[in-house]
Design a protein around this nucleic acid. Structure first.
Lengths: 248, 248
DNA sequence: CGCCAACTTGATGGCTGTCAAGTCAGGTGG
DNA sequence: CCACCTGACTTGACAGCCATCAAGTTGGCG
């Protein structure tokens, strides 16, 4: 009991005032070409920064929706639970991406968001965002684009789940990760998976054994090298041909 | 040739000024409690009504994004095409629902929207919508909810594609249709499918034969009666148990 | 009446799920 | 420092669900 109190409370209270004006992820979260005055208004809109430890929830399905969250650093997954116990990972999110937009429609979150590594997020109270969006056109349009991008991304996942075979799914997944790491200035060819095989499988609609076998097969073919969660892509073109060539 | 010209051109030109103030789908498209003045402003925001004949495209992937569309009557599907020819239906839309939000992020549509029966839609130029959203808070919030609802819906489809077996998918599909028809004042138990088995299969990540077999099996079990595209649900509770009971 | 698209039904095969055993890496306690 | 333990992962054998291929049926339309 006492132990719990000591270990948990300090973590969630670790909050700082956010400062978009100083943030190097600004171009991911915010529109181009805001005036100084506007950036200051955005600084005031964003509430606080919060640290979330690995395996902690940022929010849970059913909780009241109050804010969306910008990931400042770290890595998250979102997942949905069915009544019968089945669940599915609906996405993996990394720095510069936005979490929580599913909650707007029903005023409650519809999925869980869990940190896969120690992370830092900026809290954006939704009423503030809407108020400021009414004043700054560029911010309004940017937010609409962010939501729309989420819809397009989901369509991509539906495509993947509906039409692709196991190896195609995993290839698409790796290429997607590679591209997103590249966009953040990391190596396109070498990265560390933050999620387990089981979580990858859940996201891709596969069992963990199938994911593992596909990894092994890719390694045998010389497309990648796998050591636990460390991935190195050796033949990006090879992975890409897996996607386009295998027509049904 | 001459025949084509005669049959096609008149259709797409069939456009009227829209009038939300008169529309009985108002509660689906618009927020509650707008003032008369505000409804009038919305009337001006919405461009024209357009008729789309069965099998005609409302928009195609790649076309410039200019407007979103509210379905006034009729039935649509949206689908995405992969380079290698595979495609997938990403959704079926009916009266009161909104089409085209996928286009906001990239300023171009990312999927095709095709009428599955003769339909009528209201064109909502997106710059108008954003302008008016900045003035009418309720409209702004309503639009955000509509986009968020699309995200939540997509998560539901991902769940379906990622975790359910063929018969569960079809049961979920039928129950979803039933619920949406009910919300529009139609019978919850009896309706006409506007799409082919192939389109259902594409949406559910199944082949048309599998869809057909599942229909037959549901009929044998006494859950539904099927006559071509005419569906009658005889045992809604039975269909629902298919969803929750079959844990893996 | 005949044609065609949509659909149904059967037989077969393959991909992936399931079950099981074993390996590996990291952390803990002696 | 090392043995042990646990969770994550790999690999193999087998089975089942669904895709594929094929043939036949139905209903709508010219």
């Amino acid at each position: 009991m006492a132990k719990q109190i000591h270990s948990v409370i300090p973590l969630t209270l670790n909050a700082l005032k956010a400062a978009c004006s100083q943030c190097n992820l600004r171009e991911l979260c915010l529109p181009y070409g805001l005036s100084e005055q506007e950036v200051e208004a955005v600084d005031n809109m964003v509430g606080v920064r919060r640290r979330i430890k690995r395996q902690q929830h940022l929010y849970r399905a059913g909780e009241a929706f109050e804010a969306i969250y910008a990931i400042r650093s770290g890595f998250f997954k979102t997942d949905v639970l069915l009544e019968d116990g089945r669940d599915q990972v609906t996405g993996f999110q990394m720095a510069g991406e936005i979490l929580g937009m599913d909650g707007i429609s029903g005023e409650a979150h519809t999925c869980n968001a869990v940190a896969l590594e120690d992370s830092e997020i900026c809290v954006i109270p939704f009423v503030h965002l809407e108020r400021l969006s009414r004043e700054i056109q560029a911010l309004q349009h940017h937010f609409h684009k962010v939501m729309s991008r989420e819809i397009v991304r989901d369509h991509g996942v539906m495509m993947l789940l509906g039409t692709m075979r196991a190896e195609e799914r995993l290839a698409a997944f790796l290429l997607n990760l590679s591209q997103r790491f590249t966009a953040r200035g990391y190596s396109p060819a070498e990265f560390h998976l933050r999620m387990t095989r089981d979580e990858i499988g859940s996201y891709l609609g596969l069992k963990l054994e199938t994911v593992s076998r596909a990894f092994s097969r890719f390694q045998d073919e010389g497309f990648i090298s796998v050591q636990q969660k460390h991935i190195r892509i050796l033949n990006i073109a090879g992975l890409k041909t897996l996607l386009t060539h295998q027509a049904s």
